[in-house]
Structure formats: C-alpha cells, structure tokens
Computed example of a mutant assay.
Amino acid sequence: MRILTALITAVVITATSYLPGIAATMGEDGLHKQPWFTITFKDMAEDIQAASEEGKRLVVIFEQRGCTYCRQMHEKLFSDPEVTDFIKEHFMVVQYNMFGDEEVIDLDGEELTEKTAARKWGYVFTPTIVFLPEEVPEDGSVSEVAVATMPGLFGKWTFLNMFRWVHEKGYEGEEHFQKYHARIYNELREEGRIDSE
C-alpha cells in the first residue's frame, strides 16, 4: 500500500510540475485580464496623477487578441508572485488593446482611440510595456516622455529587472539597463537563485 501511495504521489507531483502557469481571465475583448490591473478612462495625464497619488508609477501594457506572447506573459510571468508582488507595490498598470476603439487622451491633449494611439506612439509589438514619468510632464506625447519601453516578451529576470530599474530611476543614472540587468542577473546566479533565464 505504501508503494502504491508513493507511486501515485510521484505521478501527481511530476504531472503538476509540467502544467503551465495559472490561466488569466479572458475578457470580452479577447485580452487576458489580471484582477490587479487598473481600469481608467485612459486620460494619460489623469492616470499619471492617480498613480502618483498612490505612490506608484503608471505603466501601460499594449496587448492584442490572440497574442501568444501576451498569453505567456499572463500565464508565466503574472502567475509568479515575485514578479506580481513587486509590480503591484510600485506600479499602476493599465491595459490597452493594440486594435481597440476605447478613447485615449494623449498628454498633448489629442483625443485618440487605443489603435490610433498605438500608431501615433509607434508601438507595433504586443506585449509592449510603456513606463511613464512620475509626474505629468508639461508637454509632449506619451512616446516622447516615456522613461522606458519594453517591446515584446522576455524571460522573468529581464522582465522583472526592467520594472526594478525604472522603480530605482536607473534611466536617470549612468548604468544602462543592459548593464544593470547583467549585474543583477550575475548576483542572482552567485546566490544560487537562478541557473538560466
């Protein structure tokens, strides 16, 4: 009986270790949703101000229906507490549909839709993650004032380190993100926390 129980336990552990991350909720627009995403009127100045009042930074994520990389971001990265806990503590995240029709008001006051905003700002990949300044800038559009942009899907440590670099205002210093990421990555390897990205 003990052997049978041990075998069943081993099979269950092995099978569950290969399951993908927890699936995100799917919205009517075909985009994966996280309960901690913030729903706003997509007025960029108001959103930057609202994030600032919470002691956070505004992040905009462009996604699209059927995007395999977006799904992987939700299932693999946003199911990892180390990633999501850091993001939720320091950032207010607003989701945009690359081909959506919801109204967007750019920082320069221009009224757009999500899809025309994506075109105006030059974002063509999904996911694209856009990091905005701490305070509402005096002039410029989103693409002109963004402090960093992450186009596409990356592994956990590149992804998380970009959020850390922005939180630490690395864009104001001399250490380029790639140098920052390499330094943090090597420190994590030396601590035995990672084998590879």
Rank of each mutant, 00 (worst) to 15 (best):
R2C: 00
I3C: 02
A10H: 08
V11N: 13
V12Q: 09
I13G: 10
S17G: 11
S17I: 04
P20K: 09
G21A: 10
G21F: 06
I22N: 12
A24H: 07
M26C: 07
G27F: 02
E28P: 09
L31Y: 03
Q34P: 02
P35T: 04
P35H: 11
W36D: 12
T40P: 00
K42H: 08
D43N: 15
A45N: 13
A45H: 13
A50L: 09
E54W: 02
G55P: 05
L58I: 02
V59I: 14
V60H: 06
F62T: 00
E63V: 00
Q64K: 14
T68K: 15
R71Q: 15
M73R: 07
M73E: 12
H74E: 08
V83A: 15
I87K: 01
H90M: 13
H90C: 14
V93N: 08
Q95V: 11
Q95W: 05
N97K: 01
G100I: 01
E103Q: 14
L107E: 04
D108W: 03
D108G: 11
G109L: 09
G109A: 12
E110N: 12
E114H: 09
W121L: 04
V124P: 00
T128H: 08
F131S: 07
P133M: 08
E134F: 12
P137A: 07
P137C: 10
P137D: 14
E138V: 08
D139R: 13
G140K: 07
G140T: 07
S141Q: 08
V142Y: 01
V147T: 09
V147Q: 03
A148S: 09
A148N: 06
A148Q: 05
L153A: 07
W157S: 05
W157V: 01
W157R: 10
F159W: 06
R164I: 03
R164P: 01
R164K: 15
R164F: 02
E168L: 14
K169Q: 13
G170F: 10
G170T: 07
E172L: 15
E175C: 08
F177R: 06
Q178R: 09
Q178P: 03
Q178E: 13
Q178L: 07
Y180W: 11
H181N: 10
A182C: 00
N186T: 12
E187P: 06
E187V: 11
E190P: 00
G192H: 03
G192F: 03
R193T: 01
I194D: 00
D195M: 01
D195L: 01
D195I: 01
E197K: 02
